[in-house]
Deep mutational scan, measured.
Amino acid sequence: GVRVRALYDYDGQEQDELSFKAGDELTKLGEEDEQGWCRGRLDSGQLGLYPANYVEAI
């Protein structure tokens, strides 16, 4: 996976979405899909989806 850092807070709206705060680091686990979602893993171990444009590569 690729380490990325959140640029903005994001509150997951669905069960399969991650929630994070600006500045949090997570691991991107795949390329974004056509809707702009990426699969990732928080350092807590939680897996889920997040909007790709909310993070930057570290």
Rank of each mutant, 00 (worst) to 15 (best):
G1C: 10
V2Y: 05
V2N: 15
V2T: 10
R3K: 08
R3A: 03
V4K: 03
R5F: 04
A6W: 00
A6V: 02
L7I: 13
L7A: 01
L7S: 05
Y8E: 08
Y8S: 12
D9E: 05
D9K: 06
Y10W: 09
G12Q: 08
Q13R: 14
E14W: 08
E14V: 10
D16G: 14
D16T: 14
E17C: 15
E17S: 12
L18F: 15
L18G: 01
S19I: 03
S19A: 09
S19K: 06
S19W: 04
S19N: 06
S19D: 05
F20A: 01
K21F: 13
A22R: 12
A22H: 08
A22K: 12
G23D: 05
G23H: 04
D24Y: 04
D24M: 15
D24L: 04
D24T: 12
L26P: 00
L26W: 14
L26E: 01
T27F: 12
T27R: 05
T27E: 06
T27Y: 15
T27A: 07
K28E: 12
G30P: 05
E31C: 13
E31P: 15
E32P: 13
E32M: 12
E32W: 08
E32V: 12
E32S: 13
D33P: 08
D33E: 15
D33W: 04
E34P: 12
E34F: 06
Q35L: 14
Q35T: 13
W37K: 11
W37P: 02
R39M: 11
R39T: 10
R39L: 11
R39W: 08
R39Y: 11
G40H: 05
R41E: 08
R41M: 08
L42Q: 05
L42N: 08
L42Y: 00
L42R: 05
D43H: 05
D43N: 10
G45W: 03
G45K: 01
G45I: 00
G45C: 02
G45Q: 04
L47F: 10
L47I: 15
L47W: 11
L47K: 12
G48C: 00
L49S: 11
Y50L: 14
Y50S: 02
P51D: 03
P51V: 03
P51T: 02
N53C: 14
N53W: 08
Y54S: 13
E56M: 09
A57Q: 11
I58N: 04
